[in-house]
Amino acid sequence: MNNMARLVRDQVARVMRGFRLPFRAVSARNIHGKLIGVQMEGLSGESVSGELFQHYGFSSAPQPGAEYLVVAVGGKSSHSVVVASEDGRYRLKLRDGEVSLYTDEGDYVHMKRGRVIEVVTDDLVFKVKNKVRFETPLVEMSGDQHTEGSIKADGEIADHTRAMKKDRDIYNSHDHGGGAKPSPLQ
Score class of each variant (00 low, 15 high):
residue 44 S to H: 07
residue 44 S to F: 06
residue 45 G to W: 02
residue 47 S to Q: 04
residue 47 S to I: 11
residue 47 S to T: 11
residue 48 V to C: 07
residue 52 L to T: 00
residue 54 Q to I: 03
residue 54 Q to Y: 04
residue 55 H to R: 15
residue 55 H to A: 15
residue 56 Y to P: 08
residue 56 Y to F: 15
residue 57 G to P: 03
residue 60 S to M: 05
residue 60 S to Q: 04
residue 60 S to A: 09
residue 61 A to E: 03
residue 61 A to M: 05
residue 63 Q to I: 04
residue 65 G to Q: 01
residue 66 A to I: 03
residue 66 A to G: 05
residue 68 Y to L: 01
residue 70 V to N: 03
residue 71 V to C: 11
residue 72 A to P: 10
residue 72 A to R: 01
residue 74 G to E: 05
residue 75 G to K: 00
residue 76 K to Y: 09
residue 80 S to W: 00
residue 80 S to R: 02
residue 81 V to F: 08
residue 81 V to M: 11
residue 82 V to N: 00
residue 83 V to F: 06
residue 84 A to C: 15
residue 85 S to I: 02
residue 87 D to I: 01
residue 88 G to P: 00
residue 88 G to L: 06
residue 94 L to Y: 02
residue 95 R to P: 00
residue 95 R to C: 08
residue 96 D to P: 01
residue 97 G to I: 01
residue 97 G to V: 04
residue 97 G to P: 01
residue 100 S to F: 05
residue 101 L to N: 10
residue 101 L to E: 11
residue 102 Y to P: 00
residue 102 Y to A: 09
residue 103 T to Q: 07
residue 103 T to A: 05
residue 104 D to P: 01
residue 104 D to A: 06
residue 109 V to W: 01
residue 109 V to A: 07
residue 109 V to I: 12
residue 111 M to D: 04
residue 111 M to Q: 09
residue 111 M to T: 06
residue 111 M to S: 10
residue 112 K to F: 02
residue 113 R to S: 08
residue 113 R to A: 09
residue 114 G to F: 05
residue 114 G to P: 00
residue 114 G to D: 05
residue 115 R to F: 05
residue 116 V to E: 04
residue 116 V to H: 09
residue 116 V to L: 11
residue 116 V to W: 03
residue 116 V to K: 09
residue 119 V to H: 09
residue 119 V to W: 14
residue 119 V to F: 08
residue 121 T to F: 03
residue 123 D to S: 15
residue 125 V to E: 09
residue 125 V to L: 10
residue 126 F to C: 07
residue 127 K to W: 03
residue 128 V to A: 12
residue 130 N to F: 03
residue 132 V to M: 14
residue 133 R to F: 13
residue 134 F to W: 14
residue 136 T to L: 08
residue 138 L to E: 11
residue 138 L to S: 11
residue 138 L to C: 07
residue 139 V to L: 12
residue 141 M to T: 14
residue 142 S to N: 12
residue 143 G to R: 15
residue 143 G to N: 01
residue 143 G to D: 07
residue 143 G to V: 07
residue 143 G to M: 10
residue 144 D to Q: 12
residue 144 D to M: 11
residue 147 T to W: 13
residue 147 T to A: 13
residue 148 E to R: 14
residue 148 E to I: 15
residue 150 S to N: 14
residue 150 S to F: 08
